[in-house]
Each structure stands twice: as C-alpha cells, then as structure tokens.
Simulated scan of single mutants.
Amino acid sequence: MSDPIVHDSAPVTLVGGGQASVRDVEEALIHAPLLVAVDGGVSLALAAGHLPHAVIGDMDSAPPEALAQIPSDRQHRISEQQSTDFDKALRNTRAPVVIGVGFLGARIDHQMAAMTVLVRRADRACVLLGEHEIVLACPPHLHLDTRAGEPVSLYPLSPVRGRSEGLNWPIDGIDFAPDGTVGTSNHALGPVELWMDGPGMLVIVPRRCLEQVVGFLAAQGQSWSARPQT
C-alpha cells in the first residue's frame, strides 16, 4: 500500500466543490483543523481564507487561478477516472476522523457517489456535513447524543443487520437492504446506541450532532477492516 498524501494525528477537513459555504468550512475546522481541498474545493478553501495543506484530485474542476495560489508541492494530481475526487482524497488521508464539506447538496448524482464512498471506505471514519444533517457510515458501535423526537434515519447501501437502543422503532432482527427494508424517518427517544454486524449502513442525523459524533469516532479509531479494492 502506498503512503498516504495526508497523514495527521488530528482530524482533517476535506473541502469539495459542491454546495457549501464559508460558514460550513469554519464550523468543520473547529473540529478538524487541518484543511485539504478536493479538486474544485480549492476555490471555497481560499474564499474562506485558508491555504490548503494539500489539493487532491484530477484537477479538472480546479480553476487555474486558484491553483496558481497553491505551492506546487501541495498539489497532488491523480488522473485516473475510475474513482471520484472524494474517493481519491479519502483513500489518501490518514486521520482519526475526516469531515467532508461540499459533498452534499446540489447534484444528486454527486451526493449518491459520495455516500457510496462512505461505505466503500468504511475503514475510514468520515462524516459528511450537509445543510441540515450529517451523514456517516455506521461503525460497529455508535453512540448518538440525540434528543427525543429528533430524526435518526438509517439507509443501507448493502445487506446489513443491527440492533439499537433508544430508537422509536428498534431495528433488532431486521434484514436491511437497499432494494428491501430501509430505516428512514425513524426518530430518537433520547440518546441512541447502534450496533451493526457489518459495514453498509448510512446514518443520517441532525447537524447539531456533528461535534459529538466526530468526538466519538475520533476516540474509537478505525472501525471496519479495509475492503480489497479492484
């Protein structure tokens, strides 16, 4: 396995070129202070007043005038087209947890691709920050400091089973699958505990849970084993 481009003992913020604001970047940096731009996300990073530690991607959407402000040794072009720029960046980042900004909202196909990467790289603790929610691949065990009535949606991207405490509709004994039973529109009775028997389940909770979830994931270390990649 090749050495990662980014390796840090602190959480890392990946900034993509999708729908996001300077406020989103600043909120992510509170919890994940090292900023890495993903292709066209270099424009948002610079607009937020931050020089990225690295820029990773195929550079097809990074404006030349933005790249001109980045030292050449911080630019990491990966030209292959078999993976998304988010995948390129996440698989080349080693950190306790990653926050992704600019990967939700706007184009639906880009959102779907980003969420697929969350599951494909489920050995990497990563949280995507959206306008109202956060999305992550559920680790083997997850504690959520939710409040009664808050939405806790579960969406499988592969067949998976689990169990829960604190959900209005417990998931114990349910066979989840993307073309079968899904767990959207569930809600919390208070704090929630989830246990999964394998990777594949997306968890979608309110944005206010970002700090607690990032802290929990950072304390847990890597969760699932890395999948062999073709």
Rank of each mutant, 00 (worst) to 15 (best):
D73M: 07
H53F: 14
A66L: 02
D58L: 04
P64K: 09
A66V: 03
I56M: 03
R77A: 13
S83A: 13
G49I: 09
E80I: 03
G49R: 04
F86G: 06
P52E: 10
A62N: 03
A66Y: 00
A66H: 09
I56L: 09
P63M: 12
I70S: 00
P64D: 15
Q75S: 11
R77H: 13
R77C: 08
I56P: 00
A54E: 06
D73T: 06
G57T: 04
Q69C: 09
I70D: 00
G49L: 07
S72W: 04
I78N: 02
H53D: 06
E80G: 07
H50Y: 12
A48V: 14
P52T: 12
D73P: 00
S72G: 08
A48N: 11
Q69A: 12
I70L: 11
P71S: 13
F86N: 02
D85R: 07
Q75D: 10
P52Y: 11
M59T: 01
R77L: 14
L51F: 09
E80W: 12
D60W: 05
A54N: 03
A48I: 12
P71E: 12
R74D: 01
T84K: 00
H50P: 00
H50K: 09
E65W: 02
S79F: 07
Q81Y: 04
P64M: 13
H50G: 01
A54I: 01
P71H: 13
H76N: 13
E65A: 14
E65D: 15
S72C: 09
Q69G: 04
S83V: 13
G57L: 05
E65N: 14
D58R: 01
A62H: 05
M59I: 14
G49M: 05
R77I: 11
A66F: 01
D58C: 08
Q75N: 10
A54L: 05
S79V: 13
A68K: 04
S83Y: 02
G49T: 02
D60S: 14
G57H: 09
D73Y: 11
H76V: 07
Q81V: 06
H50I: 12
E80D: 15
P63C: 10
I56N: 01
S72K: 11
I56V: 14
Q75K: 13
D73V: 06
G57C: 05
T84C: 08
D58E: 06
S83G: 12
G49C: 12
S83R: 03
Q81R: 10
I70G: 00
A48K: 04
H76Y: 15
A66P: 00
P52H: 09
L51S: 11
G57P: 00
D85A: 09
D60N: 11
M59A: 09
S61V: 05
H76F: 15
H53P: 04
S61G: 08
R77W: 10
